[in-house]
């Protein structure tokens, strides 16, 4: 996975997470408990994806340095 791809994935997770946070709150206020769990699950998965992607990017980025 190239560095460009990592950037793209991370930016993508941000946009997904903004939407998920919004939807989670909306579902929470409407007491749609199942939807709260679904959206929040997606949010957490995306947070993990962002982190793993970052890890990967770090490896590539700092390897070049040496």
């Amino acid at each position: 996975m190239g560095k460009k791809t990592c950037w793209a994935i991370i930016i993508f997770t941000i946009s997904v997470n903004v939407v998920m946070l919004q939807w989670t709150i909306e579902a929470f206020l409407g007491r749609d408990n199942e939807f709260v769990l679904i959206y929040s699950g997606i949010g957490i998965v995306m947070a993990f994806v962002a982190f793993l992607t970052y890890w990967n990017w770090r490896k590539i980025e700092y390897k070049e340095d040496k």
């Binding site: 991370i10 946070l21 929470f28 007491r31 769990l37 949010g43 957490i44 980025e61």
Partner: peptide, 28 residues
């Protein structure tokens, strides 16, 4: 590099900010 790190932090913060809501929902 610093920009990407902040971006990752923001993404994770947004994602994890949904956790309290789902905990409350599970209690519900």
């Amino acid at each position: 590099r610093a920009f990407l790190k902040s971006a990752v932090g923001a993404s994770m913060a947004l994602g994890l900010a949904t956790v309290p809501f789902s905990v409350r929902a599970m209690m519900g």
